[in-house]
Amino acid sequence: MNFYGFILDNTGLVLEYTLNHISLVAVVLFFSLILWIAVGLVISRYDRIAGTIISLGSIVFCIPSISLFGFFMSVPGLGLGRRTATLVLVIYAMMPLVRSVYMGIKSVDPSVIDAGKGMGMTGLQILFKIQVPMAWPMVFAGIRVTVVLITGIATMATFIGEKNLGRLIHQGITRGNADMIIAGAVIVSLIALAIDYIMGRIEKKITSPGLRFEAGK
């Protein structure tokens, strides 16, 4: 068993797969943040559609990722490759992102909003000066969960032609190459752990000291 031996022997390949992996996650994150934070903000103001949207997200979340990849792969115009991978991962990011934005905004103490309104803040001022800053730690936690999740599920995109760390695991299994499997699994796990750790540190930093006591409770 010598997985770092495998890594050393195949540095070019491992590096390529790793970079591919990271770039896929980055692209997905870019689109997901724009799309789902906006959706989260919108549904926080329209309670009637909020329930529907959030349960839609949870349903999507229950579908095995491989099914979504496989299914969208068969849609004409998408096929194998990055486009499908991006689309599916963006869909997966919906649940944690929309939910955290919605829950974050809804968790703001109503008396604070009442006070803001009573002092003459407009709806948008309440949103951007009270709700968003107070929800921000929760939203960031949601982003953190999403990034970790996407990093993990992105491994499955290897089955629709993505050349990323999932491919090391997949090919390792088909070829019975244990070192290859472990190399893939270890690198992708380390990336996920590192992202989780770093974002956890950032989360602590960006949370207003006035809100920190709540997390400590």
Binding site: M156, I169, I181, A185
Partner: peptide, 12 residues
């Protein structure tokens, strides 16, 4: 945080 595919694969 460890991807499911990694968990499944690591015991193989």
């Amino acid at each position: 945080t460890i991807p499911p595919l990694a968990v499944i694969a690591i015991f193989f």
